[in-house]
């Protein structure tokens, strides 16, 4: 048994110590947010926060997480009461198939917890580890900008510099 602290709650997980966190979250804890995309740390569909930093849950063995705090999109509110980022993604209709979106939201959450006033270039660089195949990127950026404002900050527009 390995103890995992997920969204503030300790859970006993009966799985091999080398099991990546992703499978424990999805199959043992029944959390849907983190998705299997590549298992290689290349696409970000599995992104969660570990001790407030974005991490690829497909690469982290659960044995390494006993003392660490894991957060998933399920901690950012509910359908009825969504948090700032989920609400902003909904307001901007920032999804097509949506498979990548939970990972996008968690990566953006890490940024906005660090600063609610990033520059556009920082925002784009920060989001670069996460892939989207539908081409919803422009809406994802709009949603993060909207959430930054809702959180009392705002993304500083240096779009020209960003290029």
């Amino acid at each position: 048994m390995i103890t995992l602290t997920v969204n503030g709650v300790p859970h006993q997980v009966d799985a091999a110590p080398d099991t990546p966190l992703l499978y424990a979250l999805r199959n043992d804890l029944g959390l849907n947010g983190a998705k299997f995309g590549c298992g290689l740390g290349q696409c970000g569909a599995c992104t969660v926060l570990v001790d407030d930093k974005p991490a690829f849950s497909c690469l982290l063995p659960i044995a390494a997480l006993a003392e660490r705090k894991v957060r998933t999109i399920e901690s950012l509110g509910t359908r009825e009461k969504p948090g700032a980022l989920p609400a902003a993604f909904e307001a901007e209709q920032a999804a097509q198939c949506g498979y990548c979106i939970a990972g996008m939201i968690m990566r953006a959450q890490a940024l906005l917890e660090r600063t609610t006033r990033p520059t556009e270039a920082e925002l784009r660089a920060h989001m670069a580890p996460n892939l989207c195949r539908c081409g919803t990127h422009m809406r994802v950026l709009r949603a993060v900008r909207r959430a930054a404002i809702a959180m009392g900050g705002g993304v500083r527009n240096d779009a020209e510099d960003a290029l």
């Binding site: 849907n32 998933t72 999109i73 359908r79 209709q93 999804a95 949506g98 498979y99 979106i101 939970a102």
Partner: peptide
């Protein structure tokens, strides 16, 4: 009208949304 997508709320809050999520 721009009716909001009916499938987006589940997709941005960790709801069951995909065949991958079936248990």
């Amino acid at each position: 009208t721009n009716l909001p997508r009916v499938d987006i709320p589940a997709k941005v809050t960790g709801g069951v949304a995909y065949v991958q999520d079936m248990r």
